[in-house]
Amino acid sequence: MNVLFVLTGHADLGGRPTGFHLGETVEPWRVLRAAGHTVDFVSVDGGQPPMIGHDRHDPHQTAFLADPEGGELIAHSRRPEDVDPGAYDGVYFVGGHGAMWDFHGHPALHAIVRSVYGRGGVVAALCHGPAALVGVRLDDDRLLLDGRAVTSFSHADETSRGLDTVVPFSLQHALEKDGAHYSCAPDRHAHVVVDGRLVTGQNPQSAAGLARKMAELLAQ
């Protein structure tokens, strides 16, 4: 099956660098490819998106960045508007604070979610990636998140890092405003929530667990 990974193109976090989180990309990529799935990438602006979370001592990250179907593919990523959502059985919104700026309210990303979910596919998002799900309305005009169990980077964790006044909105509160039933674990503890074909993870520590749940759902 084909899975689309979506990456932020936003690089500024109140004067600090941000972008898509490499660890949140590599672990799901490895799990899904090992399960036999094909992974494609888009980034909001196309081309080489900004990146954070690079651990130069992690051999999996090093191998990913050198792989023609990994980092080399990301370097020439397409924009969301340039792909056919109907070609994908799953979509995964990778985290990184940049997603708070360019995932939220993005019409092409909403269209991808509607298409994948409406055809019985899997929708997943990690850390700040659920910003892409806020405000998404399905074909029957219901909010995707209304009544659904979800998680994301928590407001408390944002506040503890002094970033609650830097990000454009509180992700946790936005999910709750859409009617989602939000839960979280303590900071830096893995927490993955599955509600039907919707899979969300709280933080980078949740990346592998989220990917395993995606693989299980794609196999059904």
Rank of each mutant, 00 (worst) to 15 (best):
M1L: 13
N2E: 12
V3F: 01
F5A: 08
F5G: 06
G9C: 06
R16Y: 11
F20Q: 12
H21T: 14
G23N: 01
E24V: 02
V26S: 09
P28D: 01
P28I: 02
W29E: 08
R33Y: 02
R33F: 11
A35M: 11
H37E: 03
V42F: 04
S43G: 03
G46Q: 07
G47C: 08
G47I: 11
P49K: 00
I52F: 04
G53H: 09
H54R: 15
H54N: 14
R56H: 15
D58S: 14
D58K: 09
H60A: 15
A63L: 11
A63E: 13
A63Q: 12
F64S: 01
L65N: 06
L65K: 03
G70Q: 03
G71M: 01
L73H: 07
I74K: 10
A75V: 10
A75F: 05
D82C: 08
V83Y: 03
P85Y: 09
G86T: 00
A87Y: 00
Y88Q: 09
Y88N: 06
V91D: 00
V94H: 04
H97L: 13
A99Q: 05
M100L: 10
D102P: 10
F103K: 12
F103V: 02
H104Q: 13
G105I: 08
H106N: 14
H106P: 07
A111H: 13
A111M: 12
I112V: 11
S115C: 13
V116D: 07
G118I: 02
G121L: 05
V122N: 02
V122L: 00
V122E: 00
V122K: 11
V123R: 10
A125W: 01
H128L: 10
G129P: 01
P130M: 02
A131M: 08
L133C: 11
V134M: 05
R137C: 12
R137T: 13
D139Y: 11
D141H: 11
D146M: 12
G147R: 08
S152E: 07
S152Y: 03
F153Q: 11
S154H: 06
S154P: 04
S154G: 07
H155V: 11
A156V: 12
A156S: 13
D157C: 10
E158N: 12
T159F: 00
D164S: 14
V166D: 04
V167K: 01
P168F: 06
A174H: 05
G179K: 06
A180Q: 10
S183A: 12
C184T: 14
A185S: 01
R188G: 13
H189A: 15
H189Q: 15
V192F: 05
G196F: 04
G196C: 07
G201L: 07
G201R: 05
Q202W: 02
Q202V: 10
P204S: 10
S206K: 04
S206N: 09
A207Y: 02
A208P: 02
A211W: 06
A211V: 05
K213M: 14
A215Q: 04
A219K: 11
Q220E: 15
